[in-house]
Design a protein around this nucleic acid. Structure first.
Lengths: 153, 153
DNA sequence: GAAAATTCATTCGTATGCAAATGATATCAA
DNA sequence: TTGATATCATTTGCATACGAATGAATTTTC
């Protein structure tokens, strides 16, 4: 095949070879950047709480009291990570911890009154964060994107 | 409006109110999970290098010698983060550092022979990682998804 | 019912990721 | 040319994120 043929060949048919690995076109790299952008938007709107901390409060609002590990499963954090998040929320008086009466291994987590106030107050801001993150897309594109993204996660 | 009317109302017309904020349907949350999944796939295939470290090597392969800061811009890392990544690559002999002759502020980074060998060897694995990450989608869905994801990043 | 396997939580070590402060050097502007 | 700005790099502090090891408590299995 001559070099000229490449001018006629559609891009989709390109055989990737080691000469042209383009980092900026790989899912992982773009996924990382999209995530960074979202975190940045989040920080601009909710400065005093991180996305993982918000996730913990929002999920506790949904399900009520649960064990630390169970909460971690619900918000996709491993045991070590969720411990740090809960520790910091506890230090700020947004959650309270107690021991499970029957199963002595479990550490129960629940919202305090202040924690409930905080999450109720922040939810409208979180809706705006979602909107701003998706702002580059049209309504139809958003529907498509969310469907596909969910398949990948 | 009676409760029965809700049965007839299409889902898309639901007015979101604070009662039903669903964390698991928010872009940020799913984006974080998708990113986690990708990192996990990456680690399973390339155990001895992280995605940021790989990104640094791959970009150095593209552009050749650059300043640490410039490299950071190219791979979307701030100055503090890129320094850590480069330090670790240097400690493993994959990159080498030198001072810019003219502009004494700049720290030049380049691949060593070992670094070039490593990235050439890893690129085929990186292609597989991209494929596996996108495996839940069809070819057409991949094209759509990548287009929309790029808009968000 | 005792041993084995599992689950829950903690701790340690390593690696991003970013804000803010600092110091050195370069560039711009009056 | 010098004084103000801007850029490059480093450091510190804080917050995820996860593997691996450990200990305590529970469940399973024989």
């Amino acid at each position: 095949m001559s070099a000229e043929d490449n001018l006629l060949k559609p891009v989709e048919a390109e055989e990737p070879d080691d000469q042209d690995y383009l980092l900026q076109e790989q899912v992982g790299f773009i996924l990382r950047k999209a995530h960074q952008r979202h975190v940045s938007i989040f920080a601009a709107r909710i400065g005093d709480l991180t996305p993982p901390q918000f996730a913990a409060l929002a999920k506790l609002r949904d399900v009520g009291e649960t064990s630390q590990n169970q909460l971690g499963t619900l918000i996709a954090m491993d045991a070590a990570t969720v411990k740090g998040v809960i520790d910091r929320l506890k230090a700020r008086g947004l959650v309270e911890l107690s021991k499970h009466e029957v199963d002595k291994r479990r550490l129960l987590v629940n919202l305090t009154a202040a924690g409930r106030d905080a999450i109720e107050r922040l939810i409208p801001l979180a809706r705006e964060i979602t909107q701003e993150t998706l702002a580059p897309l049209s309504a139809k594109e958003i529907a498509t994107f969310m469907k596909l993204l969910a398949k990948l996660a």
